[in-house]
Amino acid sequence: MRQSLQHTFMGRLAAFGVSVAVLWALFFVVGPRVVAHLPALQHYGEVQDIYGIRSGQLYYTDVEMSQQAEINSRSTWRFTPTGPASGASGATGTAD
């Protein structure tokens, strides 16, 4: 009985070790190699570092850039750039 329990415990411990190893290999061996081969993914990581974003963040209050984005959006409506002669010479409307 004791041997059986010990065997079960050892089996569970082994399963734990294997699971940790699989996760480690996935995130720290395979993952970085995938990133290294995909420039788009590298750029994706770079912009997150630049703007202090983490893609796993949950809510807008967690994302610092959301605050900046809101200020920018509100400013566009509150202080819409019109120029000296309103409507006569606005930026040409290429929305980007």
Binding site: Y44, Q48, Y51, S55, Q57, Y59, A69, E70, N72
Partner: peptide, 29 residues
């Protein structure tokens, strides 16, 4: 879905996309 992922995907395109994406997501939040 995720707010952080929206901001990150917006930043991938540029600052304007980031601002609009993050603001739309905030309203949706």
């Amino acid at each position: 879905d995720a707010t952080g992922a929206v901001a990150a995907a917006g930043a991938f395109l540029g600052e304007k996309a980031l601002y609009v994406a993050a603001t739309i997501k905030m309203i949706q939040n």
